[in-house]
Amino acid sequence: MLELRLVQGSLLKKVLESIKELVTDANFDCSSTGFSLQAMDSSHVALVALLLRSEGFEHYRCDRNMSMGMNLNNMAKMLKCAGNDDIITIKADDGGDTVTFMFESPTQDKISDFEMKLMDIDSEHLGIPEAEYHAIVKMPSSEFARICRDLSSIGDTVVISVTKEGVKFSTKGDIGSANIVCRQNTSVDKPEEATVIDMNEPVSLTFALRYMNSFTKATPLSNTVSISLSNELPVVVEYKIAEMGYVRFYLAPKIEE
């Protein structure tokens, strides 16, 4: 038996909106640690890892580890029916082939339940070791989204370079080229508006903008984003989910053959 009650139901709605473009079907894993997911996009270029820790739920019951295969578009359709202020409860029976999403309005005068069919999904799970990165850039998530959107109107790829001068996002296309440099600015009024660059070594990597733009669908989840870079390794674009966990996107770089 599984029963997870999330008072801030809008978080789950936002999580689904952030990943459904990248991944079609995925297994949600439920254990005593929390509600999690790891899935690759269909081309196996990017990977998303989600964790919602059990402590972040008002009520968290998971009698035994469960993996529930869901079509993310269908799940998003159901969660769209929840109000932004609704409490969402996820329920499933051990060995059952459905999951139920229950929505309660804040005043408890409207209670809905939506039952969704589960599916069997063969998925590969990748082991991602904790790594030391050459550079970690933390910046406002809206600024990062703006940069990715702006650059994708010029080119298809972005070169992200971190030096002690700052972080540079560059692209080139048929009509021309563009460079956007963000310098560290820790003296802003609000910490979430700061750009903080933690660099051990300069790093420069090339990525497909299409994926970066897809990751920025997670912008509503967090005011800030952190971008972890090491030469020749996938970038990690992380959006923290307040007091609950994170959505992390891993993207393989384009590498000279």
Partner: peptide
């Protein structure tokens, strides 16, 4: 010319 790598080429399956 740069080629897109697969994410699977960086991590092992568990």
């Amino acid at each position: 010319n740069r080629n897109q790598k697969s994410i699977k080429s960086f991590y092992s399956t568990v």
